[in-house]
């Protein structure tokens, strides 16, 4: 789609700026990661990424991400829906609090959970009596990841739902459709792409989460070390090949998510074309 046909100099300046920016801030470091990871030969790289702890860390990252994305999808849809389709008191407060995790430093998020669920916390003895451990365990990591990523999906959905209004839902309700039918047939088709984008953002952010998780994990190798934490550990131990190899794993995971999004999007567009 061409918006301006008089393009000329301005167009090329803008394009150049964008590409230089991308090259300097993205491609160069990424290339460096790959180069360093492969610096000691392909064998050292494969050894590094097939390391038992590296795999465990990757699995934990995937686990925490799946939990966070699932829970935040449910929460995000619920929050976006109630904020846009209903009038209730406390709406502004809810809307503001949803944004809190973006504005608060992840370290603080981690500390909040340590204070709540740690030994000094009020809930500790209660949870302990049921043998539930949160701090320095997987639940803590999942909690921290959820906290940090929870605005991503609802924030993508709110503008779309606001623009749509409530007429179509009211029309469906007047014809006797139940809430679930209305959601599935009327609301969901509308928010599908925004939801997908939100899920992608949420996934990416969840995989990379470091700060809050770092406070809560306790850095138990093979148990509570996520991939970012594992990378840091290797890096602090001057194991550059290992650190960058593990980093490349994280990069690959991110690229897979992006490709997945692209494929789904293309498929969706094709569906639309067929319908037209």
């Amino acid at each position: 789609m061409e918006i301006r046909h008089d393009g000329g100099a301005l167009k090329w300046i803008l394009v150049t700026i964008c590409f230089i920016f991308l090259a300097v801030f993205l491609l160069l470091p990424l290339g460096y990661i790959v180069a360093t990871a492969l610096g000691k030969g392909i064998e050292a790289y494969i050894n590094a990424i097939t390391d038992e702890y590296a795999i465990k860390a990757a699995m934990l990252t995937v686990e925490a991400t799946i939990w966070a994305v699932t829970i935040n999808t449910i929460f995000g849809i619920a929050a976006a829906w109630c904020l846009t389709k209903f009038a209730f008191s406390g709406k502004k407060i809810l809307s503001t609090f949803i944004d809190l995790p973006v504005t608060v430093s992840p370290i603080i998020a981690g500390l909040i959970y340590v204070l709540t669920f740690g030994r000094q916390g009020a809930l500790y003895s209660y949870l302990d009596s049921y043998n539930i451990q949160i701090i320095f365990a997987v639940p803590g990591i999942v909690l921290a990841t959820i906290f940090v990523t929870f605005p991503f999906i609802s924030r993508e959905l709110i503008p779309v739902l606001t623009a749509q209004g409530t007429d179509e839902e009211e029309a469906a309700a007047l014809m006797g459709a139940g809430t679930f039918t209305i959601f599935r047939k009327v609301t969901l088709p509308h928010i599908k792409w925004a939801l997908l984008y939100g899920v992608v953002l949420c996934t990416a952010r969840a995989m990379g989460e470091f700060g809050a998780v770092s406070v809560l994990s306790g850095h138990l190798r093979g148990k509570t070390n996520t991939l970012p934490l594992y990378i840091e550990l290797l890096y602090q131990g001057y194991d550059f090949t290992g650190a960058f190899a593990a980093s490349s794993l994280l990069v690959i995971m991110a690229v897979v998510v992006l490709i997945l999004r692209l494929v789904l999007e293309q498929k969706g567009k094709k569906n639309l074309d067929i319908r037209k």
């Binding site: 009211e170 029309a171 469906a172 009327v186 088709p189 509308h190």
Partner: peptide, 13 residues
């Protein structure tokens, strides 16, 4: 009910 902006389901034929 016929809505002011019709409120046709835009993702349905």
């Amino acid at each position: 009910f016929v809505f002011q902006s019709y409120a046709l389901f835009r993702y349905m034929t």
